[in-house]
Design a protein around this nucleic acid. Sequence first.
DNA 1: TTCCCATAACGCAATATTACGATATAAGGA
DNA 2: TCCTTATATCGTAATATTGCGTTATGGGAA
Lengths: 109, 109
Amino acid sequence: MGITKSELFKKRQNKMATLAKAFDHPARVAILEHLLAHQTCICNDLVDVLPLSQSTITQHLKELKNIGIIKGEIEGPKVNYCIDEKVWEEAKDIFLNMFTRYVKQNDCC
Amino acid sequence: MGITKSELFKKRQNKMATLAKAFDHPARVAILEHLLAHQTCICNDLVDVLPLSQSTITQHLKELKNIGIIKGEIEGPKVNYCIDEKVWEEAKDIFLNMFTRYVKQNDCC
DNA sequence: TTCCCATAACGCAATATTACGATATAAGGA
DNA sequence: TCCTTATATCGTAATATTGCGTTATGGGAA
């Protein structure tokens, strides 16, 4: 159906799924990397950097904002985007926790 | 279009996007958590544990296998699934690298 | 005011995803 | 052999995502 039965899963699982969406498209990875690299927040240099149209990029930015991992500040005619520290750290924790839960096994597979 | 222009992005970005897909649906998070918790590989206890139908679960398992993060070993009439260590560690590295690239800023936003 | 710039919103088209029931398939046990 | 159990596959329906052109919108500059 394309519809995810979120209500049937645990909060934490849904949260991780949501946060993972920030990284599940190469354009969004590229946007986040750009934000990480340019300590100063950016506006639409992205249009010059990414091989996508302005409207598509705006949409990805919107999605990242919905997820909460970035925020945008209107500054005159432009918008400055940057990583939302709190959410970023939260994502870091959740992913770290997940990844470190793995313990090597004797060889079941 | 629903089609992602992967060819226009860098390999690393596409790789991360692919790996993120392993975590971008609560059912897949739940499956991975189950695999982490039960050191012994499992088959379809998942059908009892998850609120989804057998066919839907099989589909998620297939997707996780495509991504490469789990592998399945046929054992008689059952299939034992488990985390693929190599891919798991690779994902861990990529995400860790991404998350630790963030440096707190003076207050641009 | 009028014109441009950066962004956002709208609407469309194409494709992908999620979910499930129903039907295979394959191996082990009765 | 026939039945059961565990998985996989198929087909279908509903919804989501991706991408873009086009059109707003809002502010600054001329």
